[in-house]
């Protein structure tokens, strides 16, 4: 009996180990190959940082990286501010249609980006917004908003509404209540929401792809174009950098926000 339990638990750990290798092996290979001299990924392995050097001279990719960073930063700022405001309103007030407003956050998350992206392309083109970085920013903020609202609202669930009432009974205005009592409490949620927004924007490919123009594209869009032309170690190098950034970012986020819903 004891033996069977141990055996099954050991098998379970092996299973997890296999899953983790499945998840991380290709990424590690890619990272490794970005330091391999052979442009055709041939072994034996020969160390080089040449591809990164090439990357630093690739104007297109550098420009795209800069675009991606700018858009991610603006998306984070806008989505965090608007999303936090909306979360506070949804938390603080009871009104008819509140459930509908909450339900409206679901489609942007659940509808495949292919549909959202093509719909944005048609609409933005139709009303004269057109394509380009501004259109990409418009789209990214909309995609990031529901994430911010969900994360901040989760944090607000732990906030006692009496605290706002107590502050008001002491003479604080609505603005003072918000900045001095509510915001300090939900700040971890706001930061986590902001990091989510950054990740959503920085990693976004599909929507950016439909809204970009040849001159105004984000990094994933340029990478996609490069992949379709043919694989080069330069793409490995830039991919390794991106994946490093986003995983690092999510590790930081995890410190602010528990995903598991555990305790």
């Amino acid at each position: 009996m004891m033996f069977t339990t141990r055996l099954l638990e050991a098998l379970g750990r092996v299973w997890i180990g296999l899953l983790l290798s499945f998840l991380y092996l290709p990424i590690c290979i890619m990272a490794l190959m970005s330091f391999n001299a052979s442009p055709f990924y041939q072994l034996p392995f020969e160390w080089t940082t040449g591809w990164y050097a090439d990357l630093s001279r690739n104007g297109r990719l550098l420009a795209a990286t800069w675009n991606s960073l700018q858009i991610a930063v603006f998306t984070t700022a806008i989505a965090t501010v608007l999303g936090t405001a909306a979360s506070i309103a949804l938390f603080r007030y009871e009104f008819r249609g509140k459930r509908l407003l909450q339900a409206l956050l679901f489609p942007p998350i659940a509808i495949p980006w292919l549909i959202t992206g093509t719909a944005m392309l048609i609409f933005f083109f139709g009303v004269g917004i057109g394509r380009g970085l501004h259109a990409i920013l418009l789209g990214h903020v909309a995609l990031a908003l529901p994430y911010v609202i969900v994360v901040v609202s989760a944090r607000l669930q732990t906030f006692a509404p009496e605290l706002e009432e107590a502050a008001r009974s002491l003479g604080a205005s609505q603005w003072q209540v918000t900045t001095r009592v509510t915001l300090p409490w939900i700040m971890p949620g706001v930061i986590a929401g902001g990091l989510f927004a950054f990740a959503v924007s920085f990693d976004q490919f599909v929507v950016s792809y439909f809204l970009s123009t040849p001159g105004e594209a984000t990094l994933p869009v340029e990478i996609y174009a490069a992949i379709r032309k043919g694989f080069t170690p330069e793409i490995n190098a830039v991919s390794t950098i991106i994946i490093g950034i986003s995983m690092g970012l999510m590790l930081v986020t995890a410190r602010f926000f528990k995903f598991g819903g555990e305790k």
Binding site: L23, Y24, P26, I27, I29, M30, M33, Y41, A199, F202, D203, F205, P220, I223, Y224, I227, F231, I235, N236, S239, I242, I243, S246, M247, L249, M250, T253
Partner: peptide
């Protein structure tokens, strides 16, 4: 990995 770039992860499989 879920929160890292999906395009790049797909690309890594090519290798």
């Amino acid at each position: 990995p879920f929160w890292s770039n999906g395009l790049v992860r797909i690309f890594s499989w090519a290798m």
